[in-house]
């Protein structure tokens, strides 16, 4: 509150029309900054704690401990880059990285292409649009565990697609990705795309719908084919949505964990390992904490590599601080 200086000569009001009375009064001092909007500051304590303790504190803690030789318990005996050398010399980690690269590349490309194509198809003022959208999006509501288990079942060679096709007379038909070192990652990809493309489609559809109808009128008047309009005019116009989708898909790729656990548990052997899996096993199974910290730090670096160019594109030049 302000320390209000109440006019000592307020009696002067009794003389209407008189020349303005000048009184010398104490000025109000600015109240302490800390206590202004105190309720708001208290309300933001959970957020500030989350930011400082979890997002900043825990992240720094992990990065620092990745330079130690912590095993069962964290300890601060620094060993330099030893954990990182071990990490990059480890076959399982290398398999994880290779898998992440394949899964990531395919997932990114197919999610965008399929998502956009489906959005464009649904945008064609079709009947039952809601029904189609509902069917395509429902997997997104499911847990990765559920998705992984269903596809494990469908891809089961003894009962699933392989058997069904063989029963049709194609005796030598082979479709068993989950038990093949080479193709297991594609089996996971099928399930991942099934779950995730609906979201991308929804985003893209929202983006396409957000475009001014007059663009379509203009392109019709100029006689540009529909597909060309989509590719050459619409895609550049929904760039923000595409960028958002790319960031979402990418952060999903780096985090992929549950799906692999449910579908293959990282197998056969180690052939469907993923970085997140590697981290979890090192930290919680092998009691090799520092190795897990080093691997997770690498994941953080990967996200930063994706995120920084995006942030630059999105907020480039502008300073985003309020």
């Amino acid at each position: 509150m302000a320390d209000t200086g109440i006019s000592s000569s307020s009696g002067a009001r009794g003389a209407p029309g008189s020349v303005a009375t000048q009184a010398t009064l104490p000025i109000a001092r600015k109240p302490s900054r800390l206590f202004r909007n105190l309720a708001s500051k208290i309300a933001l304590v959970p957020m500030i704690l989350t930011v400082l303790v979890i997002f900043v504190g825990c992240t720094i803690w992990t990065v620092v401990h990745s330079f130690t030789s912590s095993k069962l318990l964290p300890k601060l005996d620094f060993v330099g880059l030893a954990q990182y050398e071990r990490l990059w010399g480890n076959d399982r980690w290398m398999v994880s990285i290779k898998n992440l690269a394949v899964y990531g590349t395919c997932s990114m490309i197919f999610s965008l292409v399929i998502g956009f194509t489906l959005a464009a198809l649904l945008d064609r003022k079709i009947r039952f649009e809601n029904t189609f959208r509902t069917i395509i999006l429902y997997p997104f509501a499911l847990s990765f565990i559920v998705t992984g288990l269903v596809w494990q079942w469908i891809l089961n060679p003894d009962f699933g697609i392989e058997k069904v096709v063989r029963d049709l007379g194609f005796e030598s038909f082979v479709f068993d990705p989950l038990h093949s070192d080479q193709f297991v990652i594609y089996g996971i990809l099928i399930a991942g795309l099934w779950q995730g493309t609906g979201l991308v489609m929804c985003l893209m559809l929202a983006g396409i719908r957000g475009i001014d109808e007059d663009i379509w009128k203009a392109s019709r008047i100029e006689g540009i084919p529909v597909w060309k309009t989509y590719v050459q005019i619409i895609i550049p116009m929904i760039r923000p949505v595409i960028v958002t989708s790319v960031v979402l898909i990418a952060s999903g790729i780096v985090k992929v964990y549950d799906l692999v656990v449910a579908q293959t548990s990282g197998g056969p052997g180690t052939s469907s390992q993923m970085p997140a899996l590697y981290v979890m096993d090192r930290m919680f199974k092998d009691q090799n904490l520092a190795q897990g910290f080093a691997a997770s730090t690498m994941m953080l670096v990967a996200v930063a590599i994706i995120l920084i160019p995006w942030a630059y594109l999105e907020f480039g030049g502008k300073k985003s601080r309020g």
């Binding site: 933001l44 979890i54 985090k255 897990g292 691997a295």
Partner: peptide, 23 residues
């Protein structure tokens, strides 16, 4: 307040694995 909010949003992109153990 906006600064903390910005960090909060960036935090959404940190892989969970990084923070699991310290939590």
């Amino acid at each position: 307040s906006e600064f903390f909010f910005a960090v909060l949003l960036i935090g959404a992109f940190i892989p969970y694995q990084v923070m699991l153990y310290p939590i």
